[in-house]
Computed example of a mutant assay.
Amino acid sequence: MHKGKCNSIADVAGVTVGHVTLDEKINEEESVCTGVTAILPHGGNWFEQKTPAASFVLNGFGKTAGLVQIDELGVLESPIMLTNTFSVAAVLQGTMDYMLAENPAIGDSTSSLNVLVGECNDSYLNSMRRMAVGPAHAVQAIRTASADFAQGAVGAGKGMICYGVKGGIGSSSRIVKYGNEQFTAGALVLTNFGRKEEIAIANWLPENTPEQRPDGSVIIVIATDAPLDSRQLKRLAKRAAIGLGRTGTHVHNGSGDIIIAFSTAYTIPHQQQSPYTDLRLLRDDHEVMAGLFQSVIESTEEAVYQSLFHAETTSGRMGRVVEKGLFE
């Protein structure tokens, strides 16, 4: 199966990604080693033009905001924001500030706003109790989003660890062709999970991997331009779990493994006169769906490895150092 031109989630037209990375040694004991990542589903008004979306919780040891409404209504009306566990509230606040400024009707003449924020625990390297991420960092991540974005130890991935080495942000994409048509599916991951003995790739871990630490987490974001509804997107989200499993993880008790999927093929207006919505959707039994399942599995698997490949050896609090994996 062919990769997209950028081999990233940005191969799905309109999707952009922005980072704010915070890296500062405070003293011998404390360091800020964290950040924010924003995934924008399209370049328009996300509240007025919602995208179909779904989530799948593989293991629910996580502190996300906004998932309940995603599953109830099947639409995404904000960027997907990623950060560390203790910064969910600040990032939600900043994203809300940005969107309220763009949409004066929210909370006044129309409904409230559902902001989606995911997290992983970066407290091995980051002095997470300092809560260094502020609302302004979320706004900055949104404003700087582009199709040409960095991967590795950047944004929300700055302080993350995966399979005992430096993890972070990774992305990949695949193209599904059918006749004269083609669809793209892309994955972006925030990797902070797994023990060194689990990884499926052998002979690439450095000797000095971190001491035993709490079970981590992973957030997986799947985007596609295939015309799917929320129910079908949940089916795609479930396949991302297979791609994750291919890398070796056992999905531990304390790991928050959460998958969010959305489609850019159409948008759902916040308000319209007609009580009906007419959609042109792919059939579940068509061979293209099987291709999309495969594309999600492959792009998720590669995105995990991309997060390791692009990461750099990183130092953090308590003098701790997490090394980059050994790639030939």
Rank of each mutant, 00 (worst) to 15 (best):
L125Y: 08
L125M: 09
L125E: 10
N126G: 08
S127K: 07
S127Y: 08
M128F: 05
R129Y: 11
R129Q: 14
R130Y: 11
R130E: 10
R130G: 11
R130C: 09
R130S: 09
M131E: 14
M131F: 07
A132K: 03
A132V: 07
V133A: 01
G134E: 12
P135D: 14
P135K: 04
P135F: 02
P135T: 09
A136P: 01
H137P: 01
H137C: 04
H137K: 09
A138Y: 05
A138C: 13
V139F: 03
V139S: 06
Q140G: 05
Q140V: 05
Q140N: 14
A141P: 09
I142H: 00
I142Q: 01
I142M: 05
R143H: 14
T144K: 12
T144A: 11
T144Y: 07
T144M: 08
A145T: 10
A145H: 06
S146P: 06
S146T: 15
D148W: 13
D148C: 07
F149K: 10
A150N: 11
Q151G: 09
Q151C: 14
G152E: 11
G152L: 05
A153P: 07
A153S: 15
V154M: 08
V154Y: 00
G155H: 04
G155N: 07
G155Y: 05
A156F: 03
G157V: 07
G157P: 10
G157A: 02
G159N: 04
M160E: 01
I161H: 04
I161V: 12
I161K: 06
C162L: 12
Y163K: 00
Y163D: 07
Y163T: 08
Y163M: 11
Y163S: 05
G164L: 06
G164C: 07
K166E: 10
K166W: 04
K166L: 06
G167F: 04
G167N: 05
G167R: 04
G167I: 01
G167Y: 06
G168S: 15
I169T: 02
I169N: 04
I169R: 10
G170P: 09
S171E: 11
S172E: 10
S172I: 11
S172C: 12
S172H: 03
S173D: 10
S173Y: 06
S173K: 11
